[in-house]
Design a protein around this nucleic acid. Structure first.
Length: 203
DNA sequence: GACCTGATGTGCT
DNA sequence: GCACATCAGGTCA
């Protein structure tokens, strides 16, 4: 399957977030390939977006990677224990990103199950299966994504996104999750997900 | 199922 | 100090 190239990411987060749905996020580790279909993503639109870490042009070591070129990872720690994985969009100097919030496991099932529940996939309960990758923190734990991968080039071969199957689905847009502090921006419909997919974090 | 709460690190005020 | 792009485990049902 073809890897998405840098030009794919060199567009507004609002476009990239929607087009990432149905694509395959791949994490290669120790010769194994873990993969999930992206089913939920949020757009963070940079300096004008009160919910974005780069709002108002804020430029600190944490957010620095968003000011670089498109197609790199921006990974940060929330609530002291969970990581969130973003993909930087737009050209250098325009600090936008797309948060990947949920995925549907497609490959490396046992490795993913071990990472999440220290259990083989076939021994998971129904609720454990549903909870493997249906949230940004869970997705990162499932794929062993942490801050050591911050700034990673997604046009490389450790962590990348490739074309999915040519399936059709309905895209739903709604308010972003967990940004109630963001003034009027809290109500912008900048979260996108695949209608009816079980792995979407919040319906 | 719905709701509540505690865990926990770090970046900023 | 405090807020935070979250989650798991508890209660009550």
């Amino acid at each position: 399957m073809k890897k998405l190239d840098r030009e794919f990411y060199n567009r507004d987060s609002l476009i990239v977030a929607q087009e990432l749905l149905g694509k395959i996020l791949v994490r290669e580790i120790d010769g194994q390939k873990l993969s999930v279909k992206i089913v939920e993503a949020e757009a963070y639109m940079g300096v004008s977006d009160k919910a974005a870490h780069s709002f108002g042009g804020r430029r600190t070591p944490r957010v620095e990677v968003m000011y670089g070129g498109p197609g790199f990872s921006y990974i940060f720690l929330v609530y002291g224990m969970y990581h969130c994985f973003n993909i930087v969009t737009r050209e250098a100097g325009t600090p936008q990103a797309v948060l990947l919030r949920a995925g549907e496991p497609m490959g490396g099932f046992d490795f993913i199950a071990q990472n999440r529940f220290k259990t083989a996939y076939h021994q998971l309960s129904k609720s454990q299966i549903k909870n493997l990758t249906n949230g940004p923190g869970k997705l990162c734990r499932a794929l062993l994504i942490d801050k050591s991968l911050n700034g990673e080039d997604l046009c490389s071969n450790k962590l990348y996104v490739e074309e999915g199957e040519n399936e059709t689905f309905q895209v739903v847009s709604s308010k972003r999750i967990g940004i109630d502090y963001a003034g009027e921006a809290r109500d912008y419909p900048w979260r996108f997900y695949i209608d009816g997919n079980v792995y979407v974090s919040v319906k």
